[in-house]
Nucleic acid binder design. Sequence first.
DNA 1: TAGATTGTTAATCGATTAACAATC
DNA 2: TAGATTGTTAATCGATTAACAATC
Lengths: 206, 206
Amino acid sequence: MAKKPIPDIVVGRLPQYLRSVQRMAAQGRVVTSSQELGERLGISAAQIRKDLSQFGEFGKQGTGYQITFLIDQIRHILHVDKEWDVAIVGAGDVGSALARYKGFHNRGFRVAAIFDNDPEKVGSRVDSFTVLDTSRMVEEIRKAGIRIAMITTPAPAAQEVANMLIEAGVRAILNYAPISLNVPNNVRMQQIDPSIHLQRMTYYLD
Amino acid sequence: MAKKPIPDIVVGRLPQYLRSVQRMAAQGRVVTSSQELGERLGISAAQIRKDLSQFGEFGKQGTGYQITFLIDQIRHILHVDKEWDVAIVGAGDVGSALARYKGFHNRGFRVAAIFDNDPEKVGSRVDSFTVLDTSRMVEEIRKAGIRIAMITTPAPAAQEVANMLIEAGVRAILNYAPISLNVPNNVRMQQIDPSIHLQRMTYYLD
DNA sequence: TAGATTGTTAATCGATTAACAATC
DNA sequence: TAGATTGTTAATCGATTAACAATC
């Protein structure tokens, strides 16, 4: 009898919980409660308790949750108690900004390589990285054992890039190209398209 | 008797539908079906029909949906049948990449101004924009009637910036700072944090 | 007409909330 | 002990899917 899988919507909230308690820790806080976390995140306290209880008993009645302990537990659950190498494909403005981004530090990720197919860009420097040619991408990613990639190419190239990445062994793709990618079931994909996020909000504006 | 409001989760799918049919239109396609759209987006055909039918009868039995007509309808529903001015706060790598981003074109948005509080950056150029001082932000945004902003400041500054934006009349915020913002009910907020998106996927990686 | 596909209803499935005993 | 807060159950709420009459 297999254990019931955790709903993806619950998995999706864990990174928010983690970010919030890490922020509390940075401010020297020691314990928190489902109520406090809920207020910070706009989520009900009951939901937070239920989500966390799917993975274990992390709190104490009457007291709440020990922040450092909760951080360790969530990092472990999300597999970010290690640093993952991440490849960036596309050395334009967005790819370069991601290569320089300081926000991956302590969150479980490290940019490992950046690729582009433009001969003008290949060999140039972005932050501490030398831009590599996309023609070598499958080989390099496979050799380095990279499992995570971010696509920042123009939309028309994105699907082919995704196919190459998957062939190379990548199993999680964060797609900044404004196009819906098709990936097999054993590959995770998330999309970031600022226009889509904005359009979701303009519905509510007059 | 008030009409039932559209669930936000339905609103959230409309921009995806729009992007997909706009892509089809760019390829010269004339009609599509809920089935085809569903396959492209990984959403069931029944769901797409149900979502669209909340707003009107946009299709024809036996035929499907006229692409140009569907585009017009969704653009109208989402209020992107006009161009919204958008302010950017934070002229770092991410803010600059957004200022230069070509992907807002034809999606309903136009960057109108970029602000920073760093004297080194104020007055400098980013794309065709001159970076303005944050101290003038409330005044400038109010004067220009800007209703939408993107925050790309460091996390510690983001909440205060959000408060200022709201005071200035902004009602939709796309937040790139890695911190959970609290905004009143009459303000929409969306968060983009690449680490959070990545962490949501590493759960599934070994 | 025959085939295809919509819009919609009812059934199913899943997620959220309320409530409270347990217990720190 | 008294007060606070968890973990969990049952109830509620909401979203998705299946199915099909309507109709192009």
